[in-house]
Design a protein around this nucleic acid. Structure first.
Length: 757
DNA sequence: GGATCTCATGTTTTT
DNA sequence: CATGAGATCC
């Protein structure tokens, strides 16, 4: 049994897999098979030590890593892992919190998870509540302070306001947290923080999980922050069976609170831990590994590993300078094309950059060459407006207390609930201590309720209230996709999205993609669905079968490998990023980032920099990154001005088939053909019409303009009246202007001069 | 009340 | 440049 599990592992890997009991720390260099070790360790626990999967927890940082690990363990064990807990820190915490919701102050198990966008709205709400100017106190900055605090396990009432800005942050933090609770919502950081607080406050709960999770395994341990570290140490305090895998040289999330010193902390905390070093790299050639080692060695304050590979020699690293970012992108494309002539496939190549903004030029270059590509990150699918809007609908149906989501949808698509109506609704709701959506539900379900809304305002409110009520009513019985379709149809979302522009088409496709996700969810609970939607990231959706180069940030590249890696923007201020230049610690992190990029490569590396780069629309000259100079010259070729490597430039390969872009997603489902252009019926005017206000003496009388009249407008110039109709108190005139085309104007505002009858 | 325009304003990396 | 928020116009 043990035989098969450790088969094909090298000696240190075997040592790690079979180590213990007790704490184990695996220091794993890039490409040294750490995922193998983790998966085999789980298999070993189950098969050899007969640990029930139910007693095992494995945490990762991305859903993708979790899925991969699960699949690999399954194939090792043949699917006997019922009850195994495997997931990201955030997802695992969310599960625990829902399970233990009764112990959470102010939350139900249905709590929603706020993403960055929701957080920003909540912070702005907090600022508004406190009468603070968001110009002076940037929401992002506030949010940053709050997030940092939470990652350090500092709650709002512990927060020290020991200077002016800190005191403001403290107050915003307090208010922000109140808003979250009122919305039955947690942000990402809360998931970790609340779990730790829960375990500290409830010894019974702590004991329960300590007993359940006899073995805890952690991937990417160098990326843990204080909260995550605390969570782990609490969980394993009883038995000490923690198996942590990490590499401090690949720590790139300091800005998110990660602290690779947790590795040292681990050794102090568990002095008896077995420490295993994985130093054999199975991925890269000697050339690439040597370059990477030369780069990382220049970071102080680290324990040098002695990485080695059996892949002697290898292609030299190609260093190229381009005139500007556009030429840089063209060079990447040309090199990819040449590699493809040599037998590489597009999917073998990855193009990496420091900031997402750099992807645009690269996309352009691939588009111009007629080549498909995969883009990771950038505008996240779930960050798109139309997607967030629809998800907000689902969230409100799921949790009417979610005011942040309700704010999104109250007048989207526009339904005649403007800011004044909103204000009075909110005021009325607040007076009853309801959230607005709850108020609407009461409004339509309890007709005897007294309210301050005049008929004109009441109509759209009632309509929305009735819709909400209907959705809330069917939500138990309906599947997510049925609910989704109902919402889309009853809000006329399609008509709202398809505004005739090309962009509208694209947005509608996104909606249909979301529908696919909903269909795939089957009979998953709405709660699970919403959680999944909030916790997934685009990296998770990277598919491998599409045969196109991948464009991604260096951060997103961690954990991946490619035969060919391009790293672009190797310039001072870009690859060591400008914001890191004066902090040695941050500079060290930039170096690690570069190291991570280099070590993704199996066979070939291309490093590019541009002599001139445009920031914010203005061009600046830049100097090559210091990191380039840190690679020994014997490992590189090229390395010079843009003219030097002409032979690299290949005449455009002509055999390219155009695959539509956005290959990272499944094709949208077939269109809904049913709803052809049915305009919403005009709302019934609610019984007795309010008497039309009599026009003021000097306001235009009805039917002042006639079809065919020539008129003049102060701004639009001369035009001809096409149509004019009375709208009660005013007159709506449709005019074809010579200069600007057809416009609809309100006669009382338009200030038209009649030129000819 | 809503659409459209202008202006400002800001970019690291993401669960 | 690209998005978003306030002002203006209809």
């Amino acid at each position: 049994m043990t035989q098969t599990i450790t088969d094909g592992l090298n000696t240190p890997q075997q040592t790690a897999v079979t180590a213990g009991p007790g704490p184990v720390l695996v220091l794993a260099g890039p490409g040294s098979g750490k995922t193998r070790v983790l998966t085999h360790r789980i298999a070993y626990l189950v098969e050899a030590l007969h640990v029930s999967p139910w007693h095992i927890m494995a945490v990762t940082f991305t859903n993708k890593a979790a899925r991969e690990m699960k699949a690999r363990v399954e194939s090792l064990l043949g699917g006997q892992l019922r009850g195994l807990t495997i997931g990201t820190f955030h997802a695992t915490c969310a599960r625990i919190l829902r399970q233990e919701a009764e112990h959470l102050n102010g939350y139900t198990r249905d709590f929603v998870i706020f993403d960055t966008d929701d957080q920003r709205r909540a912070v702005r709400q907090a600022l508004a509540d406190l009468n603070l100017d968001e110009k002076k106190f940037a929401p992002n900055r506030m949010l940053n302070g709050i997030s940092t605090a939470k990652n350090e396990l500092i709650t709002a009432d512990m927060y020290a306001g020991n200077n002016y800005i800190a005191e403001v942050t403290r107050r915003v933090y307090v208010r922000y947290q109140e808003i979250l609770v009122a919305n039955n919502a947690m942000d990402f950081d809360d998931l970790l923080l609340a779990t730790v607080l829960l375990l500290d406050a409830r010894p019974g709960v702590l004991q329960k999980y300590q007993e359940r999770y006899e073995h805890v395994l952690v991937d990417e341990f160098q990326d843990t922050n204080t909260a995550q570290y605390a969570l782990l140490t609490r969980l394993v305090a009883r038995h000490g069976n923690i198996f942590a895998v990490g590499d401090s040289d690949q720590s790139i999330y300091k800005w998110r609170g990660a602290d690779f010193r947790n590795i040292n902390r681990f050794r102090q905390h568990f002095p008896e831990a077995s420490v295993v070093l994985l130093e054999e790299n199975y991925r890269s050639t000697q050339v690439i590994l040597d370059a990477a080692k030369a780069v990382i060695r220049l970071n102080g304050d680290r324990v040098d590993k002695d990485l080695f590979t059996r892949r002697r020699g290898g292609e030299l690293i190609v260093v190229q300078e381009a005139y500007d970012e556009r030429e840089e992108a063209d060079k990447v494309v040309a090199a990819v094309q040449q590699l493809m002539l040599q037998g590489y496939s597009g999917g073998d190549c990855a193009v990496m950059y420091r900031t997402n903004a750099q992807s645009r030029v690269l996309e352009d270059a691939f588009l111009r060459a007629g080549m498909p590509y995969k883009l990771v990150g950038a505008t996240r699918f779930y960050g798109r407006r139309e997607i967030k809007d629809l998800v907000a609908y689902l969230r409100v149906v799921h949790n009417p207390a979610d005011r942040i989501s309700f704010d999104r949808i109250i007048n989207t698509p526009t339904r005649g609930i403007g800011s004044k109506t909103q204000e009075s609704l909110y005021a009325w709701a607040a007076a009853h201590e309801w959230q607005p959506a709850q108020a609407l539900l009461y409004l339509v379900s309890q007709p005897e309720l007294s309210h301050p809304f005049p008929g004109r305002v009441l109509t759209p409110l009632t309509r929305l209230g009735n819709l909400l009520l209907a959705w809330v009513t069917v939500r138990e019985a309906a599947s997510i996709s049925e609910l989704f379709d109902l919402i889309v149809e009853q809000t006329q979302f399609k008509e709202y999205i398809l505004d005739g522009t090309e962009e509208g088409e694209e947005r509608w496709e996104n909606v249909m993609e979301l529908r696919n996700v909903a269909v795939l969810a089957g009979d998953m609970s709405l709660s699970d669905f919403l959680e999944q939607v909030t916790l997934v990231s685009d990296v998770d959706d990277l598919t491998e079968e599409d045969n196109a180069p991948t464009l991604l940030t260096l951060h997103a590249a961690k954990g991946l490998e490619f035969p060919v890696v391009f790293i672009t923007g190797l310039e001072e201020g870009v690859l060591p990023h400008s914001r890191s230049l004066d902090e040695p610690e941050e500079l060290a992190e930039e170096r690690r980032l570069f190291y991570v990029g280099l070590t993704r490569a199996k066979d070939r590396v291309y490093l590019l920099n541009a002599f001139r780069r445009t920031f914010f629309g203005l061009a600046e000259y830049s100097t090559p990154s210091r990191f380039l100079g840190d690679i020994p010259a014997r490992l590189t070729s090229g390395g010079g001005s843009s003219g030097q490597r002409r032979e690299q430039t290949v005449t455009q390969a002509s055999s390219w088939q155009w695959t539509p872009t956005r290959p990272e997603r499944a094709q949208p489902a077939q269109r809904n053909s049913s709803s052809t252009n049915h305009r919403p019926a005009p709302p019934p005017a609610g019984g007795t019409k309010p008497a039309a206000p009599t026009p003021k003496a000097d306001s235009p009388k009805a039917a002042q303009y006639r079809t065919g009249q020539q008129v003049k407008h102060a701004k639009f110039g001369e035009g001809i009246v096409i149509e004019s109709k009375s709208t009660g108190s005013d007159e709506e005139v449709t005019i074809a202007f010579k200069s600007v085309g057809i416009k609809k104007l309100a006669a009382s505002f338009a200030n038209l001069t009649v030129l000819e009858k």
